[in-house]
């Protein structure tokens, strides 16, 4: 059995190819610009959150100081600094979504999963979060899970989505 505490953090070959692609989009010497995309990728590759070790690894790849990665990772809301459920259900709760029943969807989903908003189910499958505007107000209420938008939500849709997620047990993470 491998010792997980000393297991080296390293991107898969596929992820490494994407890192190269992201860096190649920017002029010579401006590779730090790729950090936003690389952190998305790192989060998906390494258990769905950014641990200090993962951030240090990203700093190493970009040849920048770890603090430069922490600065960015702590600023943007899509980066998680603590472990999350396998599926993070991010329900938009802003303005128009609130007018069309976002609170009810959050309440129903939480009740069904037996957790409070912001919490993760004991089996580590689901986290429910109320998040700010996702620019899909015309299809409210809506939520984001992984890279996908799920719109015009109803209790029935939540039921079938939860069933589907449990069955698939794999979050879509095909980064462009």
């Amino acid at each position: 059995m491998s010792d997980t505490t000393t297991k080296k953090i390293e991107f898969s070959p596929e992820a490494k190819a994407l890192v190269e692609k992201y860096i190649s989009k920017f002029p010579e010497g401006k590779h730090k610009s790729a950090i936003i995309s690389i952190l998305h990728l790192a989060q998906a590759e390494f258990n769905g959150w950014l641990s200090p070790e993962v951030m240090d690894y990203v700093a190493e790849i970009l040849n920048i100081k770890p603090i430069e990665v922490y600065e960015v990772a702590t600023f943007y809301s899509q980066y998680y600094l603590k472990p999350q459920g396998k599926y993070v259900l991010e329900v938009c709760r802003t303005g128009p979504c609130c007018l069309r029943g976002a609170e009810d969807i959050i309440e129903y989903t939480c009740k069904k999963l037996g957790i409070k908003e912001g919490e993760t189910t004991p089996d580590g499958m689901f986290t429910v979060k109320g998040v700010e505007c996702l620019a899909a107000c015309g299809e409210a209420p809506m939520m984001q899970v992984g890279l996908d938008y799920h719109v015009d939500l109803t209790h029935e849709k939540i039921d079938s989505l939860l069933d589907k997620f449990k069955l698939e047990n794999k979050v879509s993470r095909a980064f462009p």
């Binding site: 989009k25 936003i36 960015v72 600023f75 899509q78 700010e132």
Partner: peptide
């Protein structure tokens, strides 16, 4: 290229900062 969740990056100079890989 993409952001990572920040309304403020719709402000043009914040967007430029983000594009440079910063807050």
């Amino acid at each position: 290229t993409c952001g990572a969740g920040a309304y403020i990056c719709g402000e043009e100079t914040a967007l430029i900062e983000s594009l440079e890989g910063k807050r």
